[in-house]
Design a binder for these strands. Structure first.
Lengths: 253, 253
DNA sequence: CGTTTAATTGATCACTATCAACCGTCGTGG
DNA sequence: CCACGACGGTTGATAGTGATCAATTAAACG
């Protein structure tokens, strides 16, 4: 029951985010902050915001005012390419920051859509920058997070630039696995929050290819899939697919 | 004659960078700063550094201490993928900042190699962060530059994810053209500083494909190429290739 | 319960990688 | 200054991967 997330006996003021009680505070913006600095950060976070599945957190072209930290749930970010087709550029889970690509133009540069009922903390960027001057470790951590976003995209570029379909999907599954593990969830079994279409769009593949690859992985015992539930039964095998140039043989039939 | 860049009658102290006299100061870090703030930025820039063609500015895995602003020349950044093959992740020209991807781990995350004899300004990142607290507009501009790097990589992801070879190369040429134009050079004619191999690696194509595409573009009157010299004779035609899903017909024979 | 959306599977085709040969250019050293 | 060698670039022939088209099944949602 998602209504338990915000117990009804708490007043509206409680809807203000509290980093200290958030399970993501060791991954998110307040990482490494002391109690009082964390409170200062809390004080600029205007509010929590709930986004229903399928709704937009922001749209390309909208004025940029706030960064968003995912508190609960999952988002996708996507662009519309020149031919009018959506391309997914990222999947985002709790503790991750959305909107960094909007700073350069003061306009949002992509669409952010909730993949399930989700919750974010709204962080006014101007006030955040002011706070950087007072809390150097917050500034430093923010720069690390931006740099990490650059690094994340570089990995995707490498993936799109010279991996085969099979390797892309293996890398994708292992990436999700690692991110869940760091959040204290199972690295082996988890739910895919996105459709096969969205996975394909993200990996530069068609739905059909994604579907075929999943069944191939299943038949060769690397994974178990049932609709959105997935289990990485042989993550070493998946890793082997990525590392070697022609490991396809290990995965045939 | 590149020796004229640093006249011999200037003493060593003159090798310290001066943003105010740099032709790139309206694109680079000091963008929008007043004279005194620009001097404060100058004061933390440790030195200029000359990098010969083919030499590394930094290597993956090295300790991160400095950002580098390209002053003169061109660089490529590249990764070595899991199969030991180099993949180029960017081409960088004067006024651009190198090393942003290293902030997250304090280790350089890619290799940076000079494509020709080049010159950079070395910016100690710790001191730069200190300066942000004193010069808010510098902080803001730095954030814009980081955000721009995220945006740049997103474009490349879109390109690698759903463009055909022809569209990729057209997008690449137009991108170079635009960047030269903003620097006051001709948008139409310029030198390719990188090899076909490097272009292919960047675009996720083989050398052969790049070569074939260039000759195809030439035959259809879109460009003129002679070795490294290129001229975009019909940039609208190139743009049209990107926009439409099946514009290939316009470019055949 | 019925309609819409997501996923799977099959058959075929197109694009681009791969393999191979060749040419031109540049740089080096004799 | 020329010859050589290495590298970068071009062109051709072939093959493999994944896209596309098409049909069917399964799930989700009102």
């Amino acid at each position: 029951m998602s209504s338990q997330i915000i117990p009804t006996h708490l007043d509206l003021h409680a809807l203000r985010a509290k980093c200290s009680t958030c399970s993501m505070h060791e991954l998110c913006l307040p990482m490494g902050l002391g109690d009082d600095d964390m409170q200062r950060l809390d004080s600029i976070i205007s509010r929590r915001k709930r986004i229903h599945r399928g709704d937009h957190l922001y749209r390309m072209g909208e004025r940029f005012l706030n960064l968003y930290a995912v508190r609960v749930g999952h988002f996708k970010t996507s662009h519309i390419n020149t031919t009018g087709v959506e391309q997914v550029t990222g999947f985002h889970m709790a503790g991750e920051l959305l909107g960094l690509d909007a700073i350069s133009t003061d306009l949002h540069n992509c669409n952010a859509v909730a993949l399930e009922d989700s919750e974010v903390c709204e962080v006014p960027f101007n006030r955040l920058e002011e706070l950087f001057r007072e809390i150097p470790s917050l500034q430093r951590h923010f720069h690390r997070m931006m740099s990490q976003e650059i690094t994340r995209e570089q990995s995707l570029m490498l993936l799109l630039g010279n991996m085969k379909a099979e390797q892309r999907l293996a890398a994708f599954l292992l990436n999700l696995s690692g991110r869940y593990a760091r959040r204290g969830y199972s690295a082996k079994a988890f739910q895919l929050r996105m459709t096969r279409e969205e996975i394909g769009s993200y990996l530069g593949l068609t739905v059909e290819s994604v579907s075929r690859l999943l069944t191939r992985f299943k038949k060769s015992g690397l994974i178990a899939v049932d609709h959105k539930s997935i289990s990485l039964d042989d993550s070493e095998g998946l890793r082997a697919l990525i590392a070697t140039a022609d490991a396809a043989a290990t995965c045939e039939h």
